[in-house]
Design a protein around this nucleic acid. Structure first.
Lengths: 153, 153
DNA sequence: CAAGTCACTTGCATTTTGATAGTTATGAGA
DNA sequence: TCTCATAACTATCAAAATGCAAGTGACTTG
């Protein structure tokens, strides 16, 4: 969809989606958060064609979500590990997972629990400043270069 | 990428992505949250080809994120409005926007403020039970049908 | 030194996407 | 009545992305 067109615009959502707005990329990040790092681990886990995986890993690396690291000189072997920006994206995946479980959650599902308390994790997006869940209070959008503001939600 | 393959698996993230794991769909939802509802509004706002828009709107409608509603019988005219499941996805878009702003935020950006307090919205994903941001505490994953558990983060 | 592993690359067919033009149904104005 | 305009599409076709299968390079292991 020609992400270039959106990657420099005013909308931060479009900017984010320009880097990770594709299902393979997000599933690779999910697997990376599970500790997978090598080409063949991703390939087997996802059942993705190797040429496609190569392209996605390169895109994620170029966009700063993964870092390619040589873990063996002889034979030359690389692994892909999450960068700070990549790790910062993981909570969004959990939020997507929670949404998926709420609305398309028939049958058994993988569940995340707090390793210490053992309680099931229930991800919610809140506003750090007010502490209120996004969507529970009306928002105002300010578009750069425009006087008028847009009221949503 | 054949979303069918993932849409019934154990992973709730994959299930979610099977419905909305594509950039156009999420941008349509974003526009819908801004109040856009008609075919031509989406088309102009996104610069998307009409055949692609038709397909995406149909997919989002079939997956229960949008509802097609006739707002005029003569001439026949339909609009697409967010369902409860669609609205429930919006906080994730805000989280993606916040991530985009943090990591690819050069230049002016659209900003959301609390309509009452006027403060800038800063979306974070937390665990409803512990109140802690996802990623700040170690998690345990439980895969159905397997005894062993996976420790992440 | 043959077989296996890992991380790819290449070639080609299939699928999806996108640009553009056309269609349907209708109302509004000359 | 005959255009013109609008909204919401559909149809056609080229271009791009995806996916499958096979192959390659640089080793290690038996």
């Amino acid at each position: 969809m020609d992400a270039e067109k959106f990657s420099g615009g005013y909308c931060p959502v479009a900017r984010g989606l320009a880097r990770v707005g594709d299902a393979w990329s997000m599933l690779i990040l999910r697997d990376a958060s599970y500790g997978l790092a090598r080409f063949d681990q991703f390939r087997v886990s996802l059942g993705i064609a190797p040429n496609i995986l190569t392209r996605r890993l390169k895109a994620l690396t170029d966009d700063g979500l993964l870092e390619k690291r040589r873990y063996s000189e002889r034979p030359p072997r690389d692994e892909y590990v999450l960068t700070a920006a990549g790790r910062d994206f993981l909570p969004i995946l959990y939020a997507i997972g929670a949404w998926g479980a709420r609305h398309h959650g028939g049958g058994p599902l993988t569940r995340a629990t707090d390793a210490e308390t053992g309680r099931v994790i229930d991800p919610v997006v809140i506003d750090r400043n007010s502490g209120a869940p996004i969507g529970s209070r009306p928002l105002r959008l300010t578009v750069p270069g425009r006087e008028d503001e847009l009221l949503v939600e």
